[in-house]
Design a protein around this nucleic acid. Sequence first.
RNA 1: GCGACAAACUGUUCUAUCGUUCUUUUUUGUAUAAUGCAGAGAAGGAAGGAAAGUCCGGGCAACACAGGGCGCCAUACUCUUCGAAAGCGGAGGUAUUUAGUAGAAAUGCUGAGUAACAGAAAGUGCCGCAGAAAAUAACCAUCCCGCCUCAGGCGGGAAAAGGGUGAAAAUGUGAGGUAAGAGCUCACAAUGCACGACAGCAAUGCCGGGCAUGGGAAAACCUUAUGGGUUGUAAGACCAAAUAAACCCCGAUUUUGAAGCUGCCCGCUUCAAUUCCGCCUCAGGCGGAUAUCGGGAAGGGUAGGUUGCAUAGAUAAAUGAUAGGGCUCGACAGAACCCGGCUUAUAGGUUUGUCAAUUUA
RNA 2: GCCGUUGUAGCUCAGGGGUAGAGCACUUCCUUGGUAAGGAAGAGGUCCCGGGUUCAAUUCCCGGCAACGGCU
Length: 139
Amino acid sequence: MKSVVKEKQTFSKDERLSSRKLIEQVAKEGKSFLVHPFKVITLEVPTAIGTEIKYPAQVMMTAPKKRFPRAVDRNRIKRLMREAYRKNKHTLYTALTEQNKKLAIMLIYVGAELPEYKLAEDKIILILQRLSKYETPAQ
RNA sequence: GCGACAAACUGUUCUAUCGUUCUUUUUUGUAUAAUGCAGAGAAGGAAGGAAAGUCCGGGCAACACAGGGCGCCAUACUCUUCGAAAGCGGAGGUAUUUAGUAGAAAUGCUGAGUAACAGAAAGUGCCGCAGAAAAUAACCAUCCCGCCUCAGGCGGGAAAAGGGUGAAAAUGUGAGGUAAGAGCUCACAAUGCACGACAGCAAUGCCGGGCAUGGGAAAACCUUAUGGGUUGUAAGACCAAAUAAACCCCGAUUUUGAAGCUGCCCGCUUCAAUUCCGCCUCAGGCGGAUAUCGGGAAGGGUAGGUUGCAUAGAUAAAUGAUAGGGCUCGACAGAACCCGGCUUAUAGGUUUGUCAAUUUA
RNA sequence: GCCGUUGUAGCUCAGGGGUAGAGCACUUCCUUGGUAAGGAAGAGGUCCCGGGUUCAAUUCCCGGCAACGGCU
């Protein structure tokens, strides 16, 4: 928990949502909202599992195969989302540490066309702000 | 110098900063029998010619398997100092399509393409419409004989030479021959079959004499020859974690009723009787039923890691962003076991070859 | 990643070498006071695309494209 507060721009394996069980749980029970080209699904991780996770949030990005049949396009979208999240995640991290919470987040791209990086970054920032605020009144 | 086609090669680049993945390594902390875990840093590697389609072949793996037959599937001109192998590549032969050219035509020559190029004289089935007839051909016209009658008609036979149709009508032309005709005979030509000589490793070509001339289709069934066990890395192996009281089989032991605890089941405690069915026999024994336990089988539960796995390489899955510059302003497109081939998508560039046509000397 | 199935009228499906079919839907007419039902007539097709075999291909063969399903 000590290394988290630093505003590092890394994005290591532990910061990604990688447990198969947890992914299924989020998809099933998570709450979702929409910020235009993205759909966000979140779930507060129970403390029993949460103690094993070192970072305040785990995130995954996807792009649907139906809209983007070519693998090149899907890779590009996921890379842009990942880059935008990596650069701006520290605001969410500080907010979550104050609340002593852990979040699992799924980001799904639902737009019809390939996005520009600028647009993607703006929207990701908006999502992160909303996530930080969204959890505050519950405390 | 311009255009078209084919083949081969190539498939934006540089600097800085922040990041991703793997390998090696330095250091700090911590737990240790080896060493592991966590943090920080350094060096190096990091998508394609198709990574795609999953169409072939091989490696690898699990399961199955005495031997033989039937069935099913695939392959089918020749050679190969290409290859691990293949239905792949190369060279060659044959057939056929197309463009150009020569010619009156048949056809030849040159370039490019295609071939699933064994067998239709083993057998079965099929060939719409049209046409007399579509495969053991007599409708019209032809010829001969007989009868009625003399315009002609009827009956029997001969004959594949003429006729329209059709994708296809029994090899074509000429002569002889005949009642009329016919490969019936002959000449020339065409096709097929086996034989011999020559050329070639061979397919085959060419020449010679001989025999034959009742179609097409085997990407209809089929026949012949050769080959093929099935399934696929989500295969499979190991560790960790988690494991019902159904039903079936085997072995061992075998009791029932009432009351209480309790919402019910299971279970426990107390009391009473000492067995439910069949047989042998009347003490008892054997078998079955019922119940419990153990094992097997079946089913249920569990769903994380290591390996398989690669000098790119993970296990929710890695190449991006920002700033600045260069050029021809960037197509198709992203590895999940590996390798070889095929097919499909593809902007631009380079080289070689062929064809067409223009200009200059 | 691996293994399969299917593409025919607007929709659901037959047809498996010889001019493309059914039901529903659509158009016009009849019937009715009007509508539905019923009756009569009609229109509508790149048989997914390209190539091959054949006299002839929706059908047989090869290669693409698209949609769908199964294996964890």
